[in-house]
Simulated assay, not measured.
Amino acid sequence: MPPPHTHHEHGHHHQSGDGGQAEILDLDAEVLAEHIAAITRWLPVRSDPRRIVDLAAGTGAGTFALLDRFPEAHVIAVDASPEHLRRLREKACARGVDGQVRVVSADLDDTTWPDLGTPDLVWASASLHHLADPDHALRAVRDLLAPDGLVAVVELAGLPRFLPEHAPAERPGLEDRLHAAADRLHTEHVPHRGADWGALLTAAGFTVADELAVAVDIEGARDPAIGRYALGVLRRLRGAVAEELAADDLAALDRLLDTGSPHGLLRRDDLALRTERTVWAAGLRP
């Protein structure tokens, strides 16, 4: 699916699964663990769900956050990537919850989905905007959700940012230009990014119960994983937008991505993770 993987945006186009993307998903879960936990605590559930489906589960950030929040639940983790599902299974075993997690290989763009039971909660984090027909996916969720169940759609405002505005010194504003190039490609290839998911949920037969905006701003000094996360994200961003960049910008980006350079991302002390997420929680229309 073109362009070549700017779509991880916090790593979540789960329909293709190379190791590099899986590493970003693991870092995403590590760096944003507190924020994901806060979202699970916010969910307006009527009672603790016992049956959960995690759509495009990746390597399990949502699956395990939901099990931490609802420890009696069983989760069906759905993804199209064998690598992601393998990692998720390994994590479930390591955590001792493999009896509560079932992995299902499926492409959410397929006309028919495998049997996912009748879940009390369906979780779809940063995944629906990648689908060719998210309306079809939402109708499929409507048809399988329990009568008192809840669907939670978590979506991103855009790619995460890491550098100060003045960085790097030789090409200030480089990250803005990278994002502008990625946005141009996304407009063509990922048209549902930034959609009004509240309206789409309503059109699919749901009633939106609540909406939550989550702003993330974590200083790199607080978490050394942010440097590794920035490296992974910007490497993949380079792979997608290199042809769109001026030669000087590409050279500056490559200096940042050089792990042996004193000017590389891993040596900087001014990184921060800045991003925004919005969560829509909806139930079946009465």
Rank of each mutant, 00 (worst) to 15 (best):
S105L: 15
P134V: 06
T111G: 13
T118R: 15
G239M: 05
R50I: 04
A92R: 05
S81Y: 09
G232S: 11
A195W: 02
A240G: 11
L284T: 01
D223L: 02
A204G: 05
D176E: 13
V151Q: 00
H186V: 06
E155D: 15
R89Y: 00
T207K: 07
R255G: 06
L256S: 00
H13S: 14
G60Q: 08
S16H: 15
V190W: 00
D115Y: 05
D28C: 15
T63G: 09
I24W: 06
H74D: 09
E155P: 00
S16A: 15
L32P: 09
D48H: 13
P224C: 07
G264H: 04
L163G: 05
D254P: 10
D270R: 00
A199N: 05
A203M: 00
P191I: 08
S16K: 14
A38P: 01
V97N: 07
I52H: 02
T118D: 06
M1C: 11
S127Y: 00
T6Y: 11
S81V: 05
H12W: 08
E211N: 14
E165S: 12
L108F: 12
I39Y: 00
P262G: 10
D133K: 10
T187M: 03
T278A: 13
R274M: 06
V103L: 02
C93M: 14
P172L: 09
R51K: 10
E30P: 00
G62T: 04
A195V: 01
G232C: 09
D109W: 07
L245F: 11
P49M: 01
A33G: 09
L163Q: 04
L121E: 12
A56Y: 02
G17H: 06
Y229G: 09
L163P: 02
D249W: 09
V97T: 07
P286R: 03
A124F: 01
I52W: 03
V104C: 14
R89M: 05
D109T: 13
H263Q: 14
D148Q: 09
H10G: 15
E219L: 07
L253F: 12
H136D: 09
R46A: 12
A247L: 14
R142S: 11
E23V: 13
D148I: 00
R285I: 00
G58H: 03
L231N: 12
